[in-house]
């Protein structure tokens, strides 16, 4: 099965994506990650204003039979959260790179972030 991996995003080994196209960095989980999880039924987000260090478990995504911690790939302060996914967790399944984003954080894209090509290689392994 092939998964959508947009060329203009950065990725992590743990299947988060980083969009640096706006003022703050926007974070979400990849198409591959949502597919592995199955139907998402519950999302817990960090709080706006919370300071995070890269690698912190800062959000939780639950399906029926699995719980996944989401690790922030970026150090910084949370500037916005997507409350839409709290009411409609299925957005993570239907639109993981769009309306299913999780939070925005004020910080820098880490040096070890993967490009789309490298991430594609990794998920195809």
């Amino acid at each position: 099965m092939t998964h959508e991996i947009p060329d203009d995003l950065h990725y992590t080994d743990s299947h988060e994506w980083i969009d640096d196209g706006g003022d703050a960095l926007r974070i979400g989980i990849t198409d591959f990650a949502q597919d592995e999880l199955g139907d998402v039924v519950f999302v817990e987000l960090p709080e706006e204003g919370e300071s995070l260090n890269s690698g912190d478990a800062c959000a939780v995504v639950e399906s029926i039979k699995a719980v996944s911690d989401i690790y922030t790939p970026v150090t910084g302060t949370v500037t916005a959260t997507n409350d839409g996914v709290l009411d409609q967790p299925e957005l993570l399944n239907t639109d993981p790179y769009g309306e299913g984003w999780l939070f925005e954080i004020d910080g820098q894209v880490p040096d070890d972030a993967l490009g789309a090509t490298d991430y594609r290689e990794q998920t195809e392994e």
Partner: peptide, 9 residues
């Protein structure tokens, strides 16, 4: 809501 429970979490 079984993700609260020991067999998953």
């Amino acid at each position: 809501l079984q993700t609260r429970e020991q067999h998953i979490r």
